[in-house]
Write a protein that binds this DNA or RNA. Sequence first.
DNA 1: TTGAAAGCGCTAACAA
DNA 2: TTGTTAGCGCTTTCAA
Lengths: 347, 347
Amino acid sequence: MTDLQRGGPDASTRTKTPTIYDVAKAASVSPSTVSRALARPGRVSAATAAHVRRVAAELGYHVNLIAPGLRTGRTSMLALVVSDVTNPVYTEVIGGAQAAVSEAGYVLVLIDAQESDLLEHGGLVRALPAVEGVVLAGTRLSDAAIGEVAGKRPVVVLNREVAGVPGILLDSAYGTRAIVEHLWALGHRSLTYIGGPEASWADGVRLRGLRDAAGDLGAVVLGSGPYEPTVAGGRAAAAALPDVLPTAIVAYNDQLAIGLMLALQSRGIRVPEDVSIVGHDNIAPAQIVNPALTTIVAPLHAQGQAAVNAVLAALKNPGAASAKPVTLPVRLVVRGSTGRPRARSAG
Amino acid sequence: MTDLQRGGPDASTRTKTPTIYDVAKAASVSPSTVSRALARPGRVSAATAAHVRRVAAELGYHVNLIAPGLRTGRTSMLALVVSDVTNPVYTEVIGGAQAAVSEAGYVLVLIDAQESDLLEHGGLVRALPAVEGVVLAGTRLSDAAIGEVAGKRPVVVLNREVAGVPGILLDSAYGTRAIVEHLWALGHRSLTYIGGPEASWADGVRLRGLRDAAGDLGAVVLGSGPYEPTVAGGRAAAAALPDVLPTAIVAYNDQLAIGLMLALQSRGIRVPEDVSIVGHDNIAPAQIVNPALTTIVAPLHAQGQAAVNAVLAALKNPGAASAKPVTLPVRLVVRGSTGRPRARSAG
DNA sequence: TTGAAAGCGCTAACAA
DNA sequence: TTGTTAGCGCTTTCAA
């Protein structure tokens, strides 16, 4: 009777997943013994445990994540929110998160905001009851909304500081300083920053870092933007550049930098002879463009892993003081897209 | 008492998600009325329904996907299996799948095999009880293993034909024919195919397609491989090429083609003057390399969407004859990486 | 139109 | 060491 519910008209062809009761019957023990043998081997005689395990394997039994989730809140699922799956930055983060998650025997629920805060919120709301914790890698949510989620589940945020929520940050101050010093050493005395999305916390940090470092050296930083953090956004930024180009451009991320470079090159402008370009993140395509992109190497894979592990730790030990942010080191990698500025008649 | 279970020592700070009982109490109706008001508005008086909805909204109530899942098997979750999340091909597919899934009010569980069939199988086994259906985009599983999964949940496979399992295929025969004809028209009389992973079904299809088309024209196809379907794999393939280079190379996918191109260029070999290169899939970086890559445009986003919709359709209508594969059209896009072969002394 | 009750698969108490 | 029982949140009969 109840079997009919789950399969519908076609139930006959679809095999029912064996339950703990099926195993119990086949092994002639009680369901709780099966549960113990599988989850807590120490609390069952070795012989029984072995027997139950064998029977379970024969039947192809696997715990149904759903049921214990209902009782204990342990669903073995974690949510990962990204603003755009096709962005190579998140691709790396997802990879790291996935590695950590599968090592812990968990499962990853992916929520792609598709750059829409409505979709992001909707997806998160739907997934929330099913997951034990949340990693927000690239979120467009407000601090208040994040706080609300953090009130229900352990949350870890990437590249953003939110009061009371643990974060995995990058040492952007170091990165931007390294960029400015590199450009200064080459002879650049001013640079233009091509900004990313307004809702991006990292964007503000990067511009500020550039300004601070430039100020110390006596260099000038011009800001421009916001732009979509994509190759297309970079092309748009190139179109909006003044006729007298800056000698050096620093972009919010590599995708912008690449779009910018391609657009400028198609106008006959040479990189780095006419303009030096620097990106952020070191995504795979940064090494594919010609010239290869000078950029800030961010440990994206490690960030994804660290975030998942932090959520897992918060789950295991809810009392621990957790809200202190972790900062991961970055470094500048110099490639072909930066060089000495040409001497020019006027600025 | 039972509240303590879910939160642990820190439960005081973590808010409990409101349940249907909380709403029922607040609205002074029975739980079943709440359930009906939310899910089946027609079966409840308009006034009650409105009232319940208002109260639910005030409390911030959302259905817990877990609970109905236990009863009916409807968890509103779909699994998507990819062999490597960082591969831009899957990135696009994931994007398409995510779009379709979120439109249907579902949630996506991502399983990244990390190119390991063990991890893939483990992840799938863990996720299976929690999901209603499965999309296998890039799986290294055997036909038997796929059949087993298909026996438990609706499954749709991408780029692979598995008996009894519906698939979303690409018109590779057309694509490979277009490649061969394009190269033939340029003057190439033989080409080398750089193969992808052995476990890839598409790899065999592509090689066969090239051979068939070449045979009709009187051209020759040499095979090489298998290689990892990555940029690094392409570099490895370049190193293994004979001293006398072929005039035209067709790669299993764009990543291989790009790695190959970069490695050859770093050896001073010019593309397309010395070697013409063709890829498959048209991932974003194909337009970033210099020269841009001639390749087969695959509707990856649409494939992801179509796969999800097919699973959803199978869920809604389990009786429908579903195992007939769908073939999506592809087209050749000619860019800078292919050209006329130079006249040469000997082959 | 509404309420009461049972049960999905599992596990934590409690009892034996 | 093992079995029994109850209940997680929800939906779906069945009854009122």
